[in-house]
Design a protein around this nucleic acid. Structure first.
Ligand SMILES: [Mn+2]
Ligand SMILES: [Mn+2]
Ligand SMILES: [Zn+2]
Ligand SMILES: [Zn+2]
Lengths: 139, 139
DNA sequence: ACCTTATCTGTAATGATTACAATGTAGTAT
DNA sequence: ATACTACATTGTAATCATTACAGATAAGGT
């Protein structure tokens, strides 16, 4: 199921294809909820009981190194991971812990006024209380 | 030296004044280099050998809770602290580890298009290689 | 099948942060 | 001034995400 898609992505980037890499990449593509490494580990361990958490970290490292996955440091206590797609920003609800996508303009690689630095990543992080939590509905 | 300034700031915010709180606040005001908790601890311990690292964390907690200090999670591995002044963004050099201030427009509390969320913090994080490191001068 | 090399796994170590209990301090009431 | 109270500070132990490491495994080329 969908294996060709992720196999192709890895091959195009010169990353050796392994079942673990396929699974992590697929999981992030199908679950755009900015999971932690442990979330990914626990989810994938169901179908692959021999999976090691170290492998999850190793896979996330290589995927982010090749730009296929984005690492979010918004929470400060743990990294959250995002399938790299179109550029967007993030809002962390400090009440329920969810991270939601935000689309704003004017925040990009080229918008940095200070000259001479080589910019490789741009993150817009918003924090506060999400709509659901304000209504008392949130998790 | 300058004690009145920081005493006043703490009092205005209803924060009880203690020598440790004054020292941390003063250090952050005088050292706009986005230090870690450990940086602050080691610097202040010189003049106050009985200082505890737990106290540094406690002080930073309360100062950030009252909005006098900003917590930066840009590095992902450790928090960096910034005396809260005028709004600005940050650039982390992944080579030398320094964080430099960046001033861009169009990133503010009210620029978030999604409605209904209560925004309390906005961070613009850039990452890359700083000018000095590109020149081979960086630390 | 064999060899080489990279990956995966499990466990131990690291390091920043937090929890906790004992001690110290400042202000207030007696 | 002394006793009381509440809070701050300190030192140590615990936590938790992440990394280091060494042995087992698997893939690709001969
Ligand atoms: Mn996202
Ligand atoms: Mn700054
Ligand atoms: Zn929420
Ligand atoms: Zn640099």
């Amino acid at each position: 199921m969908d294996t060709e898609k992720y196999t192709g992505i890895l091959r195009e980037n010169g990353i050796k294809v392994t079942p673990q890499r396929l699974e992590v990449l697929r999981f992030l593509d199908k679950n755009r909820i900015h999971p932690t490494a442990d979330d990914i580990y626990r989810a994938l361990k169901k179908d692959n009981p021999s999976l090691s958490k170290t492998t999850v970290y190793n896979v996330l490292d290589i995927l982010s190194k090749y730009g296929l996955v984005e690492v979010l440091t918004i929470s400060g206590t743990e990294s959250r991971y995002d399938y790299k797609s179109t550029r967007h920003q993030h809002f962390l609800c400090t009440s329920c812990g969810r991270i939601v996508d935000i689309h704003i303009k004017g925040l990009c690689m080229d918008c940095m006024p200070e000259k001479g630095h080589k910019v490789e990543e741009v993150h817009g992080y918003f924090k506060g209380t999400c709509r659901d939590c304000l209504k008392g509905v949130g998790g």
